[in-house]
């Protein structure tokens, strides 16, 4: 069921900070800061991760000229066990907080909840977003950082970045959140943790299809439909699913993927970027800035998440995935 926001909450500002390797990203010019130290001068990766969340929030607040005390809610999450980086950042931000976990789709699930709080009048300003830190995530989901395993061409690189949006009441000068679709947990029997794009593509397909159908729209109504982190292969699969459903491939040009484009054509990163910070960083820097510059008028942001854990993989389970979408417009 699609959510239509009558009050059209605004995406007032986005704060995005990223790590040293993300300077290579084709989107890095849109980020607010790239840090040379992947640990943000902290002792552990997890502490650096927390710091990154705080700084992304600070940038979002600073741009809008609001203070911590003006913020009513803080919504966010990350990929570390029990989301301690975000939970600990919430402790320091001292704002009423709900942690949300939708794996790499958390950026959008957070924004949906923040928009609902705004819609019902409970929130004047809310921070919503997600983050991931390469070292902290890899050690948990895969191998130690310095372990020499061979990643296949289907693998993706977890991004070090945090993206947070400031969501507020409707203002014409900012992009408006018109509608949202909450995705189901979709499982097409994929079980390879080094091929996440293949697992997530069906979830993105279902969410986009359901959103378009219920909004009575076609793909060409959008200037951009941007998925989160399907990677190059996942994007190919998503387009393949649309083609098999009877849509001509030339109609699919608005369909792009943040993960596939993130590091350009650099083969070091195999199929592209991934991680909760990937979609958050691109959505809340590049997309917002391009909307305000007038490049895009109507955009569908579809964050995709693989809902697995190392435990479920080792127990031989397949990978359920989800995708959440928001429709944003700019006058």
């Amino acid at each position: 069921m699609v959510i239509v926001f009558q009050s059209k909450p605004s995406l007032i500002a986005g704060g995005v900070v990223a790590g040293p390797l993300e300077k290579r990203s084709i989107f890095s010019q849109y980020f607010d800061a790239n840090y040379d130290d992947e640990r943000w001068q902290m002792k552990t990766n997890e502490q650096g991760h927390r710091k990154m969340v705080e700084e992304a929030c600070e940038f979002a607040m600073k741009k809008a000229g609001v203070k911590k005390t003006d913020i009513d809610y803080f919504m966010g999450g990350d990929l570390v066990n029990q989301m301690t980086p975000t939970n600990f950042a919430a402790r320091d931000l001292d704002i009423p907080f709900i942690g949300l976990f939708s794996a790499c789709a958390t950026s959008i699930s957070s924004i949906i909840v923040a928009s609902l709080l705004t819609e019902v009048g409970a929130s004047n300003f809310a921070l919503a977003g997600a983050s991931s830190q390469h070292n902290a995530v890899e050690r948990q989901f895969r191998y130690p950082i310095n372990y020499g395993s061979q990643k296949p061409q289907t693998a993706q690189w977890t991004v070090t970045a945090a993206g947070y949006a400031l969501i507020g009441k409707h203002h014409e000068e900012y992009p408006s959140i018109e509608a949202a679709t909450v995705g189901k947990s979709v499982d097409y029997g994929m079980d390879d943790p080094f091929h996440m794009g293949a697992a997530m593509a069906p979830a993105a397909f279902q969410t986009i299809q359901s959103h378009l159908a219920q909004r009575n729209q076609k793909i060409y109504h959008y200037d951009l439909i941007l998925t989160g982190d399907l990677g190059q292969l996942g994007l190919k699969l998503l387009k393949g699913m649309f083609v098999e459903s009877g849509i001509k491939s030339e109609e699919l040009t608005p369909l792009r993927d943040a993960g596939a484009e993130f590091y350009g054509q650099d083969e070091t990163f195999q199929s592209g970027a991934s991680g909760a910070g990937c979609s958050a960083a691109v959505f809340l820097s590049y997309v917002i800035q391009q909307m305000r510059a007038g490049t895009f008028k109507r955009v569908l942001l579809v964050a995709t998440g693989a809902l697995l854990s190392p435990l479920t993989f080792q127990q031989g389970e397949t990978i359920p995935c989800t995708a959440h979408a928001i429709e944003i417009t700019m006058k």
Binding site: E38, N146, F269
Partner: peptide, 8 residues
Amino acid sequence: IFKPKGNV
């Protein structure tokens, strides 16, 4: 003596 570094 070493710290894990994620850079490629």
